[in-house]
Structures are given as structure tokens and as C-alpha cells.
């Protein structure tokens, strides 16, 4: 209890400094709204956030897809998952629910991927839904067999990085610039990247939930 006092004082001092910093910022920071909107017609999409994510700052997203893959590599290196096979028995309530929910989730994930070009949505939002669908499927025991195909899982997990890197290489051959899309084709390339990323993001999030690599013996 005694050691809490200095830490509390430290945190309060931190808070005071942070508050001071916020209040001394310009009331209307310059930002990049105008620049983002001005280049929007050239970006290949009409949703400004997607334009930033996949075009203006697409390089961040390339590394971020790498971080996602790294996370699953790291977790698989640490431990075997409590794969659901061990506590899988028929779940009379889950199965009927899955029959209704699963198609809706998949459809919604695809819809979010597509709508991302025009409105809020995109590969990450769609991937989150896909990840949720994968968790449900696993809890329902439907994926017992799929888990045995560890190679297939690995292929799906690396798909995002591989396709993204391939798009980098191809567009660089065409334009000479990293992630510089040939004029007028931005939308297509973004959709290619996002479709592959959707699969990897969904799988990564779903498999992270189980916190370890699949255990073939349980499958």
C-alpha cells in the first residue's frame, strides 16, 4: 500500500502535464483534411479513411499486416492452444444459432470489405467480423477437421503479407515507385490487397482467440 503513494503522485503529475499539453495545442490544428480531400479523386476510393489507410499511408498498412502475422507466429511459438476439441461436445443451443448467424456474418464481412471504398468499412472491419465467425465456428466444433490442415491455416495466415508484397513488386515494376499504383487503377489494387488482407486478418483474429498453435492430436 505504501508504494502506491509515489506512483499515484507520479501519475497525477503525468496527467497534469498531459492536460497542459492538450490545452496549449492550437484550438484548430492544421491537420491534413484539405490535402486528403484534394487528392481523393486520384486515390481510387472515395472514403477518405480508406484512402489514407491503403493509398496515402499504405506503407504503414503493409507493415501492420506484417505485425498481425508476427503476432500469430509469436503466439504459436509460445504455446499450444487449448483447442476446443477437448471440450467439444454437442452444443444444442449453439448449432441452431450458428445456422442463422454464420451466413449473415460472412455476408456482412464481404459487404464491409466492399463498402470500405465508399463509406466506413474495409478489410479490418470485415476481418473483425470474419474473426468472430471463426471463433463461433470453432466453439461449435464445426472446424474440428479444418484444424488438422495446419498447412492450409498457415497459407491463409500469410496470404495478406504475400499478396501485399506481390502488389508492391508488380506496381513497382509498372511505375518505378513503391506502392505507387498506375494512374486510374488504384481502386483495383486496393481491392486486391484488401481481399487478401481480409482472409488473413479474420484468420489471425480468430486463431489468436485460441492462444496457441493447433494440436493435431486433439483434432
Amino acid at each position: 500500500m505504501t508504494s502506491r503513494m509515489p506512483i499515484g503522485v507520479l501519475s497525477l503529475a503525468l496527467l497534469a502535464a498531459l492536460g497542459w499539453a492538450v490545452l496549449s495545442l492550437p484550438l484548430r490544428p492544421a491537420g491534413l483534411t484539405a490535402a486528403s480531400l484534394a487528392k481523393l479523386p486520384e486515390s481510387g476510393v472515395t472514403n477518405p479513411v480508406t484512402a489514407v489507410l491503403l493509398n496515402y499511408r499504405g506503407y504503414d498498412t503493409l507493415l501492420e499486416i506484417g505485425v498481425l502475422l508476427l503476432a500469430i507466429v509469436a503466439v504459436w511459438s509460445l504455446r499450444r492452444g487449448e483447442w476446443p476439441a477437448s471440450h467439444l461436445h454437442d452444443r444444442p443451443l449453439l448449432m441452431p444459432l450458428l445456422r442463422v448467424v454464420l451466413p449473415v456474418l460472412l455476408l456482412a464481412a464481404g459487404y464491409l470489405l466492399w463498402i470500405g471504398a465508399f463509406a466506413p468499412g474495409g478489410a479490418f472491419q470485415g476481418g473483425a467480423l470474419l474473426g468472430g465467425a471463426i471463433v463461433l465456428v470453432m466453439l461449435g466444433g464445426l472446424a474440428r477437421r479444418a484444424l488438422a490442415f495446419e498447412r492450409l491455416l498457415r497459407a491463409g495466415l500469410v496470404l495478406g503479407v504475400i499478396v501485399f508484397a506481390a502488389v508492391c513488386a508488380v506496381t513497382m515494376l509498372l511505375t518505378g515507385g513503391l506502392l505507387q499504383f498506375p494512374a486510374g487503377t488504384g481502386g483495383t489494387w486496393i481491392m486486391v490487397i484488401e481481399s487478401a488482407a481480409l482472409v488473413s486478418i479474420g484468420l489471425t483474429l480468430g486463431l489468436l482467440y485460441f492462444g496457441g498453435r493447433p494440436n493435431a492430436h486433439h483434432a
Binding site: 508476427l70 498457415r154 500469410v158 503479407v161 508484397a165 508492391c168 518505378g176 513503391l178
Partner: peptide, 23 residues
């Protein structure tokens, strides 16, 4: 090799190799 290719390959080659070693 232009400097752009040199820089891109410094980032992309280990990244792709990392993905492939996992697969």
C-alpha cells in the same frame, strides 16, 4: 538497381521471407 528498389527490397525481402518460413 535504383535507390527505390534498394530500399524496397531491404524491407520486402525479409518480410516475404518471414512469411514463407512460417508457411
Amino acid at each position: 538497381m535504383t535507390s527505390a528498389w534498394a530500399m524496397a527490397s531491404l524491407v520486402l525481402s525479409p518480410l516475404v521471407a518471414a512469411a514463407l518460413t512460417f508457411a
